[in-house]
């Protein structure tokens, strides 16, 4: 019988700057020196009929394919909820549409790019593809978009309003938008990490199934907290999961090489979990508004495989860790939205 906190990540699939639809990054990660990398796309012709693929922008193909694959892997072909987090939505099609708007003097606009220029196109297209008429929602909240989507799914699963949820993190980065972020100084500086792209789909369920990746023990978000409020948020999460900080084996963080971002991580980690091994993922997957989705995915894979490869540790001197208990995921979005997510192995 399931308890109120029995929530599992059954499966997750990604398309990113690492080899697509696999967990190869765990043993043989690709490294990027350039400040901007686009996702490695699989051959979509093997997955979509030409008359379907021709209307889909890259982000939609990635979202559909990762969603289909987690549905196939879990047998959950009609989830109770489809919840997507995206910072920029279908930005590539939006740019094409807006550029045409300017070029053509607000006339002669083609419908396809317009239809695919909204953020909620992703969630709705997944629902149409799956024939899913249930709860469908999209969170657009910059660097906290994925966390909002996950928190929504967790709350509904915990209250047993739903039994399954397909949660996604999807963002593409166009050359034009990258240029804008470079001009603001947010991306593109030397030794400041690199910009990547995200397509992550994960299936959550209120009951364990065979081959589930891990348990999702809780999601706690707080906005502009002082140090005490941040500590209280962490304690709430741990108490609800009936854990203590001593149970946490490692903390996954979003350090990226960007100075302001990393300084905040350093101060919070020093204050809240000074002796915990720190993990990172953005050196492999890059920076993106919903990169945290890939961080949670990376932690889930580590829990499933019961090992943390050496290259995920922030401190280079550490070797691979075998046997993993709880992983705490901590992220902040520009120092405003702070999120804690607790993951455990399926048996714990």
């Amino acid at each position: 019988m399931s308890t109120t906190n029995d929530i599992y990540i059954l499966a997750a699939k990604q398309i990113s700057v690492q080899p697509p639809l696999t967990d190869e990054w765990l043993d043989d990660p690709l490294r990027y020196a350039a400040p901007y990398a686009r996702a490695i796309d699989p051959d979509y012709r093997q997955h979509f009929a030409p008359n379907v693929a021709r209307r889909l922008g890259k982000i939609l193909k990635r979202a559909l394919l990762t969603s289909r694959q987690v549905a196939a892997a879990t047998g959950v072909t009609n989830p109770d909820a489809i919840i997507t987090g995206t910072g920029l939505g279908c930005i590539e099609n939006t740019e094409i549409f807006l550029n045409a708007l300017v070029r053509e003097g607000e006339e002669l606009l083609t419908p396809t790019y317009f239809m695919q220029s909204t953020h909620n196109t992703i969630s709705s297209l997944i629902a149409i593809d799956a024939g899913c008429r249930g709860y469908n929602s999209t969170y657009v909240h910059k660097g906290a978009s994925f966390e909002c989507a996950l928190a929504d799914a967790f709350a509904q699963l915990e209250s047993r309003r739903i039994q399954t949820a397909l949660v996604g993190a999807h963002d593409e980065m166009t050359p034009g938008y990258f240029t804008l972020l470079t001009r603001t100084g947010y991306l593109g500086r030397a030794a400041a990490g690199f910009s990547g792209e995200v397509a992550l789909s994960m299936m959550l369920a209120a009951a364990r199934r065979e081959n589930a990746l891990c348990r999702l023990r809780g999601v706690e978000m707080t906005y502009r907290p002082d140090s005490n409020a941040l500590r209280q948020a962490l304690l709430r999460l741990l108490q609800r999961a009936q854990c203590t900080l001593n149970d946490v084996d490692a903390v996954m963080t979003g350090v990226s090489g960007q100075q302001v971002n990393d300084q905040l991580y350093a101060s919070v980690c020093t204050a809240l979990f000074p002796r915990k091994p720190l993990l990172r993922y953005k050196h492999l997957f890059g920076e993106a508004y919903t990169a945290s989705g890939l961080g949670v995915y990376a932690a889930a894979v580590c829990l499933s495989r019961q090992r943390i490869p050496a290259h995920l540790f922030a401190e280079h001197r550490r070797g691979e860790q075998r046997g993993v208990g709880h992983i705490l995921f901590y992220s902040h979005a520009e120092g405003k939205n702070h999120s804690f997510i607790l993951l455990s192995p399926c048996g714990k």
């Binding site: 008359n51 209307r55 053509e104 002669l108 083609t110 419908p111 396809t112 239809m115």
Partner: peptide, 17 residues
């Protein structure tokens, strides 16, 4: 070609442009 109503709109725009 199996085109549909959205394609028809695209063709109308093509004709004008």
């Amino acid at each position: 070609l199996g085109l549909d109503s959205i394609d028809a709109l695209e063709l109308i725009v093509l004709m004008e442009k």
